[in-house]
Design a protein around this nucleic acid. Structure first.
Lengths: 193, 193
DNA sequence: TACCCTTCCAAGCGCTTGCTAGGGAGGCTA
DNA sequence: TAGCCTCCCTAGCAAGCGCTTGGAAGGGTA
């Protein structure tokens, strides 16, 4: 190779692409190897197992997400400001890890299983706590409506937010920033005029 | 058996349960057979293939959905009334086919593939058209805001709506009707107070 | 009783899966 | 030059996959 790229990173990138497109279970190690340009056995010089590859992809994504969420929660105490911050942080992370975002959505059950990676489970709980706290604070302070249970509002916000990874591709005129802005508009003020 | 239940229906029910929990690719025909209480080979007396089982589950779901959507679009011409109707129809269908709903969300890409079942692709287009029409009519008539593109609003509504199948289980005090009502509240009026 | 039809089992086929063992090529260090 | 380390290939194993074949059991019909 002309540029001394790290093979490990190339494997992670190609694997994430395939996992996102086909699902983890439907992607074979031979496919990953072929996408990299090596044979399947050679993957095992870099990773201990197929699961190990999945873990590396998702863990990196979750680490970034938690870091961004922590910054938002530390910088702002106002529920509305925090909500906007969390949305922007989520979409920014999704922009940085588009494949991982999709993998996490599609295979969440597999990843959150008891034998799944511990880091993922911990991060998932931390992420959930941030949202619940913001929504409950907002409902208590009067910033948000309190006639709909937080346990219902949160999943609606969450799923609409994260599944953007499935369908959204930024264009020159409509990027991630615009998406975040419009997302906030819809969920905070509704679609009624 | 005491009651002469149709074996085919039992197979569909158990298979749907497993597909929803584990994903289609991760569920084996041997698992399905074991859940029914027969051997894997015996499944092939009732179905031609594993894909055939998946198709039967999802097609039944999609048929019901399209029927309900057609009724809504025929009964109401007002965008807001149609929106409420589509939400209620979706959640009612989801209540009748909880497993199929989840399968469709998790394996949508697989099902919408070019070699997937034709009925599913047709139904998916029909469903999409209904939503787009309602949202565009509403934006044009002034019932809905028009500063956020319909191509963004629709996926947000859709994903938040359909992924309820992943997390929602009705209780005695909070059922599908209540969920539909709250869903409309959030998306139409927003969470701000 | 004789026949048929439905439903299932027993056995296994051909193939793919994730993964492993052993070795070779090339570069770096001493 | 000698030795080592990194990275990859060749070859293949054991297990599991979807699916097929041939036949047996049992009930319904005549």
């Amino acid at each position: 190779m002309a540029t001394p790229v790290d093979r490990r990173d190339v494997i992670l990138e190609r694997a994430a692409d395939l996992f996102a497109k086909q699902g983890v279970a439907a992607t074979t190690v031979r496919e990953i190897a072929e996408a990299v340009g090596i044979l399947s056995g050679s993957l095992y010089h870099h990773f201990a197992s197929k699961d190990d590859i999945v873990d590396a992809i998702v863990s990196s994504f979750m680490d970034d997400l938690v870091t961004r969420y922590d910054a938002v929660m530390a910088a702002d105490a106002d529920p509305h400001g925090r909500l906007v911050g969390l949305v922007r942080a989520s979409i920014a992370t999704s922009a940085d890890h588009p494949h991982a975002t999709e993998i996490y959505q599609n295979d969440a059950r597999y990843l959150q299983a008891d034998d799944g990676p511990t880091i993922v489970r911990q991060s998932a709980r931390s992420v959930r706590n941030a949202w619940i706290q913001v929504l409950e604070d907002g409902a208590a302070s009067g910033a948000f409506r309190n006639d709909v249970p937080v346990k219902v509002v949160y999943p609606l916000l969450r799923d609409g937010l994260w599944l953007t990874a499935r369908w959204f591709t930024p264009t020159r005129t409509y990027g991630y920033d615009q998406l975040a802005e419009d997302y906030v508009k819809v969920f905070v003020d509704g679609i009624a005029r």
